[in-house]
Amino acid sequence: MTTEPDSSADAAEPRGAASATAPPTDPPPAGGPAAASSGKARVGVADLIFKNLTRTAGIGLLALIAVIATFLVLRATDALSANTGNFLTTEEWFPNASPPKFGVAATLYGTVVSAAVAMIIAVPVAVGIALFITVYAPRQLSSILGYIVDLLAAVPSVVYGLWGLIVLAPHMKGIQLWLNDYFGWIPLFDADSVGRSLFVASVVLAIMILPIVAALSREVFLQVPIAHREAALALGATRWEMIRVAVLPYGKPGVISASMLGLGRAMGETIAVALVLPASFNISEHILSPAGNTIAANVANGWGEANDIGRGALIASGLVLFIVTMIVNILARAIVARRREFSGSAA
C-alpha cells in the first residue's frame, strides 16, 4: 500500500528527514517488512513506523478488551466454583458467608424491569420532545431548546440520583398510592405498601435517559431532508401525516439506536439506582413495593464489605450485566442494519 508514492516522494525526502523529530534516522526498527522497499527511501521506513504505531494502538485496543474479559472471567470462576447455589436462579445474595450462596436472579430481574419501565416512560416522551423541537417549535426557540436538551443530556447521573432521592421520592408516594388504588387489580400495581420502589427508580432512570434519547433523536430528525418533508406536504399531507410519511420512517433506525443507547445507560446505571433503591434481594412483580435491587447498584453497595469470594461474585454479576448490554447493542445493530436497504443511504 505504502510503496506506491515512495518514488515520487524522493524529492521531499531530505526535507522530511531534517524537520521530523526522530523516527526516520534510525535504520531498521520495524524489522523485516521494511526490507521490502529496501533501497527506495528512508521516508518509506518512516511511513512504515507510523503505520505500525497506529496499528499497534488498534491491536492494543483488542488486547485491552481481551484482558478485561479474561480477568473478569477468571475472578468470576473462582467465586462461581465456591457457590453452593445456582448462580442464574438463586435469589439470595450471601457470597461472603461460608459456604457462600448467591445468584444473580433478583438483581438481573430488577435491572431488566427498571430499565424496561424507564424505556416505556421515556422513549415516547423523548420522541415527542424531538418532534416538538424539529417540527413544531418556531426556529429561534428550537435552537435554544436543542441546546438545553444537549446540556441536560450531559448532567451526570449522580445528580439525577440525588434529585430522585431527595426531591422526587417523597412526591412519588401519592401517585404510587393512586396507581395501587385504581390499577391494583393489575398485579404489577398491586402493593401492600408503597415507597422507594423499582417504580421510583424507573422514573428516575426515565428522567435521566430522557434528554439523551431526545438529543439523539433530534439530531436524527434534523437530518431528514427538507425535500422529503416538502414532498409529503405537496401531496396534501397534514403536519402529522408529513411526520408519519417522511420524518418517522427516515428517522426510525436512528431513534432505535438512540433508544438502545438509553436502554444501555439505564441498565448500567449504578449510582442513581443505588441512591434510590432499598437493596433487597427478591423477585416481585409488584413494582410499587419498596424493594428491589439492580446488578450495578448491588456492585456499588456490596463491594465494600465483600471478601474475596464476594468480590468474585460481584464481578460475575457484572459479567452478566455486560453480556445483557452487549446483546441489546447487537440487537440494535441488527435492527438498524436490516432497515438499511430502505434507508436514505441510496438517495
Binding site: 431532508p225 425535500a227 422529503h228 416538502e230 414532498a231 409529503a232 405537496a234 401531496l235 410519511v245 417522511a246 420512517p249 427516515y250 426510525k252 432497515r339 430502505f342 434507508s343 436514505g344 441510496a346 438517495a347
Partner: peptide, 13 residues
C-alpha cells in the same frame, strides 16, 4: 400538485 427540482421519492418506500 407539485414536482420538485431534485427527484425526491420517499427513500423508505
Amino acid at each position: 400538485g407539485m414536482v420538485f427540482q431534485r427527484p425526491n421519492p420517499f427513500p423508505t418506500m
